[in-house]
Design a protein around this nucleic acid. Structure first.
Lengths: 146, 146
DNA sequence: AGGCTAAATGCAATTGCATTGCATTTGCTA
DNA sequence: TAGCAAATGCAATGCAATTGCATTTAGCCT
């Protein structure tokens, strides 16, 4: 779960995508890999602040990784961008799964794929039936609903 | 569908909620009532620009209406705030329904309540089983998926 | 009906985050 | 290892959301 890919493997992966294997890039990737939920730009910056990377570099790296498809950028409904690794096989993050956002405390949880099912309905976009949709759920988490 | 509540009724409703029945407020409310999908602040401003209302007033009214619960403010996943009337009975907007956001053109559609079903899963927040959740769906709309 | 008071408005200014420009540094390749 | 384009750091910019404040106005109270 918290297993981080080793640096040479990361460099190779980046290189295959036309990106250099820089320290900031690797650090950003590993921060996301170690996280169990999507992280905001601020959270990534916080995690890496000891390493001294510039805020803009982290931001650009997040976007670069998103551009090449390694990372997914999404807004879970609270007007905050969050970044998450697009799962690659045995990672803890599968291809795509629903997210749950607590409307009170803002906490985020990843839901199992089976938690949500989409049904094709008359008049609805065809994408619903092909399953190529991203689902986000908002509500009160168990802590805040007490 | 495009039927707008008459002004006296609106004033009465606002008054009951501790809000005055001002021109800007009524105009904003009716703009939302006439829309068939959530509108952005910019879209509301655009609709009302002929009336000469200030941008800030529209913004504050949207927030005021949200504060008293007449309007729901949500971010459908594209980092843009959208405002929608919270349905009151026979309105075209029911209590709460899922929204569909096209990830390509940004168009928004309202989905029928039955399009999405949520299943309680081990480890997931309890809110899922009580049905008190808001669901958002992203994907390609029929136009963009061609 | 007239006046009063706080809410609402208009306008300008400010905030805060996202994003960019540019000179410098640094991977990577030949 | 020399050279070049990508990446970085820092500061500056852009832009939408939000606020401050003086003025106007709706609704209440005689």
């Amino acid at each position: 779960m918290t297993a981080k890919p080793d640096v040479p493997a990361l460099k190779q992966m980046f290189h295959a995508l036309g990106l250099r294997g820089t320290g900031a890039r690797i650090a950003v990737y590993r921060a996301l890999a170690a996280a169990e939920k999507p992280l905001t730009h601020a959270e990534v910056s916080e995690l890496l602040k000891d390493a001294g990377f510039d805020n803009a570099s982290i931001f650009r790296n997040l976007n670069d990784l998103t551009d090449v498809g390694l990372v997914v950028r999404s807004d879970l409904g609270d007007h905050v961008w969050r970044f998450e690794l697009r799962g690659s096989g045995k990672q803890n993050h599968r291809e795509q799964h629903p997210h749950f956002l607590c409307t009170d405390c803002g906490d985020v949880a990843c839901l199992p794929d089976g938690a949500i099912s989409v049904r094709k309905v008359k008049g609805a976009p065809k994408a619903l039936s092909s399953g190529t949709v991203i689902v986000q759920v908002q509500g009160l988490c168990d802590v805040c609903s007490v």
